[in-house]
């Protein structure tokens, strides 16, 4: 079953003759439980695509459907709530809240929803990501890898329909990158998550089940 679909998605900036076509007609479908890498060079449109898949940006044309919900039909607030419940984000810069502990950062999306995190599930995530001894620390006292693992935990906590990872290893050394990718893959399998990862690194993209290459806002290869 496809958890995410796009249909002739476009994103254009400006007007002719200076129009920039960041996304120029992308139609794709992501299967539930899969690990998909979207690969492309700098300026290819992959980050723009990710923003629209996550409802962070509005397409110029076309549709994005996540878990049966078309994002273009939602208002900003509805999108925020939808994102909170259905989409987990992992950012290149980790983007943890600096004043909250690791524990608070992880449970934040659930708390924003007015719920309490499932304690057993939380323990599993924490254990899987090796954060048991880090829960009382603040992000400023963690290494890059530890921060990214915290971000992954945060993305997982709401059991989202899909996890979107924007260059999750961009700020990490090669060894830590492999470690994080491995964890992403492992936790994705363990918790039956669908993962879509943006990367410019072909080597990293190889660990994914499927790689989609984008150039100039269009899919040029999909394997």
């Amino acid at each position: 079953m496809d958890i995410l679909q796009t249909n002739n998605l476009t994103k254009y900036y400006g007007t002719e003759p200076f129009m920039v076509k960041a996304i120029d007609g992308i139609t794709l479908a992501i299967e539930q439980g899969s690990f998909t890498a979207i690969v492309g060079t700098s300026g290819s449109g992959k980050s723009t695509l990710l923003h629209m898949l996550g409802g962070l940006d509005t397409p110029t044309g076309g549709t994005v459907t996540v878990d049966g919900q078309e994002l273009s039909e939602m208002e900003r607030n509805e999108l925020t709530i939808f994102r909170r419940r259905k989409i987990g984000f992992v950012f290149q810069n980790y983007n943890l809240i600096p004043n909250l502990t690791v524990y608070d950062n992880i449970v934040l999306p659930v708390e924003l929803d007015g719920r309490r995190a499932d304690s057993q599930y939380l323990q599993e995530i924490v254990k899987a990501l090796g954060l048991e001894n880090k829960l009382d620390r603040k992000p400023g006292k963690l290494s890059g890898g530890q921060q990214q693992r915290t971000a992954i935990a945060r993305a997982l906590i709401t059991k989202p329909a899909i996890i979107l990872a924007d260059e999750p290893t961009g700020n990490l050394d090669s060894r830590t990158s492999r470690e994080v990718i491995g964890l992403l893959q492992a936790t994705g399998k363990k918790f039956h998550q669908t993962i879509v990862m943006i990367t410019h690194n072909d080597e990293i993209a190889q660990v994914a089940d499927r790689a989609i290459r984008i150039e100039d806002g269009r899919i040029v290869e999909s394997r």
Binding site: P98, N99, L100, T101, Y103, D104, V107, L108, E111, L112, R116, S119, L122, Q123, V126, E132, L135, D136, R137, K138, G140, K141
Partner: peptide, 21 residues
Amino acid sequence: ESGPEPKKKAGGFTPLRHREL
């Protein structure tokens, strides 16, 4: 905005301590 680290409680930190955010 880092702010000070929270003080560790004697006997170690309970991972599942909760406060409503």
